[in-house]
Simulated scan of single mutants.
Amino acid sequence: MGLLTRDIALDLGTAATRVYNAHGGVAVNEPSAVAVNTTTGRILAIGAEAGRMAGRTPAHVKVIRPLRAGNIDDFEVTGRMLHHLLLLAGHRNPGRTQAVVCAPSDTTGVGRRAVLEACRQVGVGRVRMLPKPVAAAVGAGLPVQEATGSLIVDVGAGTTEIAVLCLGGVVAARSVPVSGDVLDSAIRTHLRKRHQLDIGRHTAENLKTGLAEAEAEGRPLAVRGMDASSGMPVTLLLETRDVQAALRDPLDRIVAAVGDVLDRCPPELYRDILDQGVTLTGEGARLHGLDRLLQKATGTPVRIAAEPGTAAVRGAGRCAEERSLRSLLETAPDR
């Protein structure tokens, strides 16, 4: 790729889509959401505006998340969303644009071709793929091209990807369907079963992200919802340990998957990881207590990358900018 201002990196995520302009940084970081009038088929809002509408729409309006676990679930809506977000990033004539796209490590050929076609549909001239764990590791500053092992755990909204990297490649990896969405769902299920309280997805997310501050201040978490039996609005005060109990099972599944990847890691690289530790990326990396849980389970240091939510797109952006990183890129599949 030439070093052009029109070179971009894309992270098409379940919860957010991010666009990185080469030599300009992250230009767009918007919810992967599209509001559609189901009667007329007209798109009403895309990105942040559509995200704010979730859970608040009339019956004839639906907020769609067109990507699932990093793969395209609704091709037409993804194309419309991507076109809009490229405009926000300043690409009004994307014909000369060249894109590095983060791809889940377990994406099939069909899934990769769908991403390629979506990019071509909006006029992107050339597409190169980069496994998302590699992109996240580059964005986190790990020495992925060196002869030393690195362990990355990328906790996204749709899936958690765990990978041991060395010499620019993936040595051992596993993707598990435990993610920010699953954690939010676990909180909602727990509150309904234990407290007969119905809450929305955004409320569950706020409870999850408010854990650290509430625990540090030694105070309960206030939550407003609807009484499951009467349908009346109600406010409860929850102890932080109540929310943590809801998260225990899905977090244990992440820990078990990390252990499985380490079990399949060559001894030489395992020693490297014991020294260097685990790096957490993705928005889920911020979950209070996850780093301590992994450190206790693996016996290795655990660090959270700076700006973990954008680590993958920043890593892909570096690959668009720096010639020395181009060997990490994969050629996009043919049609």
Rank of each mutant, 00 (worst) to 15 (best):
P220H: 09
L207S: 02
K208H: 04
L221H: 10
R201V: 14
T209H: 08
G210L: 01
G225F: 00
H202S: 14
M226G: 00
A204D: 03
M226F: 05
R201N: 11
V223K: 00
A222T: 15
A222M: 13
S229P: 04
A222C: 10
G210T: 03
P220G: 10
V234A: 00
D227N: 14
E217T: 10
N206A: 12
G225H: 02
E213N: 08
S229G: 09
G225W: 00
A216S: 13
E217M: 11
S230P: 04
E217S: 12
K208A: 02
S229T: 15
P233D: 06
S230F: 13
A228R: 12
S230H: 11
E213I: 15
A204P: 02
N206H: 09
L211I: 13
E215L: 10
E205P: 00
T203P: 00
M232W: 03
E205L: 02
R201M: 13
T209A: 06
D227R: 06
E213G: 05
L211C: 09
G218F: 05
L236Q: 06
S229Q: 14
E213W: 09
E215S: 10
R219E: 07
L207K: 01
T209N: 10
G231S: 07
A214M: 07
G225T: 05
T203Q: 05
A216L: 15
E213K: 12
G218V: 09
L211Y: 06
R224L: 12
M232Y: 05
A228I: 12
L211D: 06
A222L: 14
E205D: 12
E205N: 09
T203D: 02
G225A: 04
E217W: 04
V234T: 11
G218S: 11
A216D: 14
R224S: 15
R224G: 14
T209I: 12
D227L: 08
A222P: 01
E217A: 14
R201I: 13
G218D: 08
G225N: 01
